[in-house]
Structures are given as C-alpha cells and as structure tokens.
Amino acid sequence: MDFHCHLDLYPNAREVFARTVERNTFTWLVTTSPRAFTATSRVLGGHVNVLITPGLHPEIVHERHGELDNLLEQIEHVSAVGEIGLDGSKRFQHSYEMQRKVFATTVAQCAAVGGRVLSIHSRQAVKDVLSVLADHPGFGTAVLHWFTGTAAELKAASDMGCWFSIGPAAFNSASGKALARKMPRDRVVPESDGPFAQVNGTTVMPWSSDDTARLLAHAWDLGVDEVKLSLESNSRRLIGVINAAG
C-alpha cells in the first residue's frame, strides 16, 4: 500500500502505474494542481485500487493559485484531497501568505461539504497547519505526510488525532528516525512520496511498504511481521474512513 505517491510524475508514468496496480492493493495518487487532477484522472483513472485526488501543492501556489476555485469545486465530488498544505521553508517564504489563504480556504471547503481525508504537506509550518485545522473542526481527517516537525509538534498533531504517512526516505536522517519512534503506532500508514523521495540515490517506488515496515520495526523495537500487520490494520481503517467520506 502507498498513501502518498505522485504516480503521474514518474518519468515512465504509464509503466510504473501498471506495475503499481499489479503489486499494490491500494495506492493514493496525490496530484499537485486541479488541472493535474483532471489530466491524471483522464489518463490513469478508473482502477479500483488507485485513489486519485485533487490538490494544490504549496510549492506551486504562487503559480497556480488561480486554480483555487477549480479545487473547491472538485472537493465536492471526491472523498479525499491531496496534496495540500503549507511550506514555510526559506525557498517558499515569498508565497507563504498566499499559501495560508489557499490552505485555509481549502480546509474550510472540506468542512463545508461534510469532511474529507486530507494528505497534508507541513514542512517548517506544522504550527500553522494545525492552527488552520483547529479553526475548521469539521474538516475531516488529516494525514500528515513525511512529517519533519519537532517532537512537541508531533505530540500536538497526534493529540489532535492526525494520522501520519511515512516512507523509507524519512529514515535518511537521525531526526526522521527519532520522530518515527514517537509516532502513534495505530495511526501510521506507509507512503513512498515517489518519485521525489530517494534512498541512497535511488527513487523510492510505490511498492516500498515492506521497506517502511522493516525500518519502523527497528525504530519501534518490534518484529517486522508485527509491524506489517499493524500497518495493514491501520491502512484498512484509514481506507474505511476515506470510503465513508464524500
């Protein structure tokens, strides 16, 4: 399973998609813009085990904020939304206020239509992400992907009921390993974040969940089989939440 993947952005997307359909029982294909959602749904849509969702990635908000109305309309017809969120890193500070407006409006729309499951980017912006979510308590369920905040921010997010999607690349750093150890074990699901995520210079693929399980087993000091069962159980529960939304 893979709960956060940019399948449409692999160089050989059709081939990777076909292999993913064969190997995964569920893949959440997050898109970066409303137009990308429309195009990807047309080209790769229709498979029962692949969920394609509309989003507006914070890294391109400065270029694509004009598509916000399209996103708000798309949200009415889907059960989940992603990738959305905030990026407070220095590279994207120039668009941060616009990001906040887009994210808050998106979350408000999710609340207005009865709640959605959200795959959220929160790099160097966890406090603001959680604040926006708190302002719209009916937004649904938050899945914080590749969480890189502080231990205190992790606890705050966990206390709010957030889920966490994590992949092999999250373990590239000591801080990533430390955060993995503290994540709520009943609200962690596997992701790849491919093709952007890499391990030892190699692109992470959508069928990397066994690698994630092995890395989490080490972090949690548990057996690999036990962690695999836990991830499978968590995944089924989250898929149930997605299916119940919208």
Score class of each variant (00 low, 15 high):
28 W>N: 00
100 R>H: 13
220 W>S: 09
86 L>V: 02
189 V>R: 04
46 G>Y: 08
228 K>V: 11
90 K>P: 02
141 T>A: 11
91 R>D: 12
103 F>V: 08
224 V>R: 12
226 E>G: 02
235 S>D: 03
225 D>I: 11
212 T>P: 02
64 R>T: 11
108 A>M: 10
164 F>P: 00
129 V>Q: 07
105 T>I: 01
54 P>I: 04
35 R>V: 05
144 L>M: 15
217 A>H: 08
199 V>D: 05
101 K>Y: 12
92 F>T: 00
58 P>D: 14
113 V>W: 04
124 Q>H: 12
7 L>H: 02
168 P>H: 09
220 W>C: 07
95 S>C: 12
242 I>R: 00
55 G>Y: 07
228 K>P: 00
240 G>V: 12
138 G>H: 09
233 S>H: 11
174 A>W: 10
61 V>S: 03
19 R>G: 08
100 R>G: 01
225 D>T: 12
199 V>Y: 04
72 L>C: 09
8 D>L: 04
139 F>K: 06
24 N>K: 11
244 A>W: 05
81 V>G: 05
181 R>D: 01
60 I>M: 09
108 A>V: 07
189 V>A: 11
21 V>N: 09
205 M>K: 06
183 M>W: 08
91 R>I: 06
236 R>M: 11
203 T>K: 13
15 E>H: 06
31 T>P: 03
75 I>A: 05
38 T>D: 13
129 V>Y: 00
153 E>D: 12
234 N>V: 02
50 V>W: 01
126 V>E: 02
224 V>W: 01
238 L>Q: 01
147 F>K: 06
39 A>M: 06
58 P>I: 10
17 F>W: 13
82 G>D: 10
141 T>K: 15
235 S>A: 15
51 L>V: 03
120 I>Y: 15
9 L>D: 10
215 L>D: 01
90 K>N: 10
23 R>M: 07
178 A>W: 14
212 T>Q: 05
125 A>N: 10
191 E>N: 10
178 A>T: 14
75 I>K: 00
174 A>Y: 05
233 S>M: 11
228 K>I: 12
7 L>V: 08
78 V>A: 04
231 L>I: 13
125 A>H: 10
49 N>D: 15
